[in-house]
Design a protein around this nucleic acid. Sequence first.
DNA 1: CTGAAAGCGCTTACAG
DNA 2: CTGAAAGCGCTTACAG
Lengths: 332, 332
Amino acid sequence: MRQNPTLKKIAEKLNVSISTVSRALKDHPDISSETKKKINELAELIEYDPNPYAINLRTHSSKEFAVVVPSLSNFFYHSFISAIEEDARDYGYSVIIYRSSNDPKIEQQILKSCRHKRVSGIFIAITSETTDIAPFLKLDIHGIPVIFFDKVPQYESCNKICVGDEHAASIAAEEILKKGFRNVLGIFGDKNMSITQARLQKFMEVMRNGNPEIDLKTVHARSSEEAEQLTLSLIPDYLEKKFAIFCMSDEILAGTMKAIQRKRLKPPHDLGLIGISDGMIPSLFYPEITYAETSGYNLGKLAYSRMMRCISGSSFAQTIIDQSKLVMGGSI
Amino acid sequence: MRQNPTLKKIAEKLNVSISTVSRALKDHPDISSETKKKINELAELIEYDPNPYAINLRTHSSKEFAVVVPSLSNFFYHSFISAIEEDARDYGYSVIIYRSSNDPKIEQQILKSCRHKRVSGIFIAITSETTDIAPFLKLDIHGIPVIFFDKVPQYESCNKICVGDEHAASIAAEEILKKGFRNVLGIFGDKNMSITQARLQKFMEVMRNGNPEIDLKTVHARSSEEAEQLTLSLIPDYLEKKFAIFCMSDEILAGTMKAIQRKRLKPPHDLGLIGISDGMIPSLFYPEITYAETSGYNLGKLAYSRMMRCISGSSFAQTIIDQSKLVMGGSI
DNA sequence: CTGAAAGCGCTTACAG
DNA sequence: CTGAAAGCGCTTACAG
């Protein structure tokens, strides 16, 4: 069980003071280049690396960002994290990933631990049951910026980076209108989720305005299985009028596709199908499913630059919406 | 920017020494229950929580585990991490997740940072290009146990927890034999991967021993797209003899399923299909695909108990293989 | 240009 | 039962 090298060890070996070593290693202008040289060489040789705990205790800063997500097996969050990591690396920050398992209790613990560890900032997609924003306010009091992304609280004055729910819903709706469908089934998620409300409302609005004649039905499913059941029971037996299904999310799309396969129907011939997705699930089928793209990567880039602005001080709360774009598959 | 409460603050308010507060808070037998009571009450009130950096600096221990994986958008790793987190919580450890992006350079950085942070232990699935095991040995010298899982190094004397590649391949092969297929296509991953070699070899062995008459063909695909192309070109035009496809991994299964959909074939009627998977992809199709299960959750439980053994000192190196089981879908 | 000293927030051996 | 003191490994204002 070997000890890590310390400033003291270097100082002793070189017969200088700890202060000098510390300064030399951070290229302080006071130190002669000769001294710097020998110190850096030895440090290199014995693989000195500063103890992050000591630094933090002293300076109250960690150069660490935390990303908190409800779930990890999620392509969207994965690309979000990639984007954050790319940028963070460039700025000398490291990033730690926490998973709340969509449990507000665990989320609270994570936030607490972030506070005690004095992370430099937090990116968080909250759980679907998070109602208490006090812990976030507390973080703020302690000078830790919080950037909400994807799943964000209702609370106004905070930094939020969101998928363009309305925009995504509207471009999907427009595609349905453009293709001239007359009979449309919209399957949405849990009624209580803010993204459900946003997507549903906009989708309806665009459909109604586009063509009031359309036979439009909307339902809510809280799971993949429920979406499958709903699809099974709501696909008309005779698909005479041009029929299309819109799926608000990947989870719903997965259920709906199972029902479609079960009925041995083939998009786009038998019916039209379109979703909102990050692109992973749609690419598993043939023909690939057309979707309005929600890009975790874009969101990550936006979130990071917001974070840097907060850290540099100019931290008025702001909500940023990332616009969506249509990715053409062959399902509609 | 408020300060977190400290021992000192409590001590001052209560007119006792810092030492007494520290001891009271950890229920040291020396302290009178009266003193303990008032200290705990105040601590509770002002939400005292010890500074983890100070503790670590003092005690050289972090009560933190690191999990390092190549990728996050992966159901298998997700369940592995769930299992670790469940157990860790019970023992008062927290777990930090790192992603190497399958890049040995990044992996090295992560390991270094784990060493400096003196994490209590590391669970790691190495990148496909990790060859240098020196960093892991160094961790060991510093008394940080490393448990390799899923993707493990060739190196003998270390702790490895692996999926039962041979076992999974053999139960899939046996299922094919049992159903009496005469014409079998096995699609495997990159030839250089150890799991490919293990799965291929065992699959062939079981098939040959089971029925030497079978028309068996094996191919390698390095991506989903390649698997799709291979499947398209290798499915016989006339499926007269009973034909089955075995897919070594989810990635390959995804490509193969696209080809099957493209050809408008329906398992199990037109052909048999079986894979090795964690279960996420197989459940997206109807009928669901039959697979030999590799469970991240099981692996996590096994890995954790190995870790605890290492921490408690009895740390001879050991390789543990998790056995697989057949999950029946309707594709074969 | 270099060093001695204080202090970040804790723990613990030692003394009483 | 309680406290004073040392020390974990760093940084930085102050002094020279």
